[in-house]
Each structure stands twice: as C-alpha cells, then as structure tokens.
C-alpha cells in the first residue's frame, strides 16, 4: 500500500474570536503582487458570524459547483436556526461567497500550496482556532487498467 500526505486545517469554532485576520491574510498573500492589497471578498476563508447568538464559524472555500442545491435543510445552533448556506463551503451560483469580485472566478482553499507556504490563516490565527495537521494516509495503489 502506498501512502500520501493529506493536509488538514482543523477548526475549533469555540475559539474563534471573529477578528477575521484569516480573511485579511488570505486575500493579501494570494494577491499579485503578494500583500499588495487586502480584501476579504477575495479570501478563501470567511468567518460566518452572528454576534447576537455568539456564533463564529470560519468556513474554508471548498469545491466549485455550477448548480444550486436542489434540497435545502436548516442547521440549529444554540437554539437558533440558520440556513445551511451559512456554513456551506461551496463556490456556488446562489451567492457571492468564494468568488473573486468583478471577475467571478471561483475561489478554493489550496492550503497555501500555490504560494509555497504553510497555511497562513493558521499561522496568523492567534486565538488558535485554526490548526494545521499533515497526516499520512494509505491509498490504494492504482492498478493499470486492463487493456
């Protein structure tokens, strides 16, 4: 069996302070030239927040989809109901989240691989809400398809 490294950004939402520094550093580090701007709209991580209910949840940009979900459900947190979109990671036509402003190009977290760095949102998260972990996972070896 072969192994490969899987990168995890783990989120302990109870520790999130809602400062959104992760959004700033993400958008800055992925800018061209690097750090030339800050714009959470370009960030691949967004913090969902509801101050009245003390809910702060960082959401990392996930897969792109070109269609909206058909079914919808709701999520109950601390006795308050939220739409599932609130915590959804997808770059999706139903909302602006995780798409570049102006160009509309979908955004997805690359754990900072594209900028050759450890994940900067983790590094700059001083509340230790975000942590980074690399795990060796076994993968099945690919067998050449029968001719």
């Amino acid at each position: 069996m072969a192994t490969r490294k899987i990168k995890y950004i783990n989120i302990d939402a109870d520790k999130c302070s809602g400062c959104r520094l992760c959004e700033s550093i993400c958008s800055a580090s992925h800018a061209d030239p690097p750090y030339s701007l800050v714009n959470p709209g370009r960030s691949r991580i967004r913090v969902f927040r509801d101050e009245d209910n003390d809910v702060y949840i960082p959401v990392l940009a996930g897969p792109y989809t070109d269609v909206e979900c058909l079914g919808r459900n709701t999520v109950m947190v601390k006795g308050k109901e939220y739409g599932e979109c609130s915590f959804c990671r997808a770059s999706c036509p139903s909302r602006d989240l995780f798409r570049e402003p102006e160009t509309d190009i979908p955004l997805k977290c690359d754990t900072c691989e594209s900028i050759n760095s450890e994940p900067l949102c983790v590094k700059w998260c001083l509340s230790k809400c975000l942590t980074f972990e690399e795990v060796e996972e076994e993968v099945e070896e690919e067998t050449p398809a029968a001719a």
């Binding site: 302070s17 809602g18 959104r20 700033s24 101050e51 003390d54 702060y56 006795g79």
Partner: peptide
C-alpha cells in the same frame, strides 16, 4: 465568559461574550 471576541484584524480579544438569561449575548 463564553468567548473572547475581537475587532477586525486584532488578536487582543478584549471583548468578552456572556450569555443573558434570555439566551441572547
């Protein structure tokens, strides 16, 4: 104290969240 909360781009987290009896914060 349920959470230390911060303003934008700040890691000092000087605001503290407390739960009221009516469930609001």
């Amino acid at each position: 104290r349920e959470r230390e909360v911060a303003c934008a781009n700040c890691s000092l987290r000087c605001k503290h969240a407390y739960r009221n009896t009516d469930g609001t914060y």
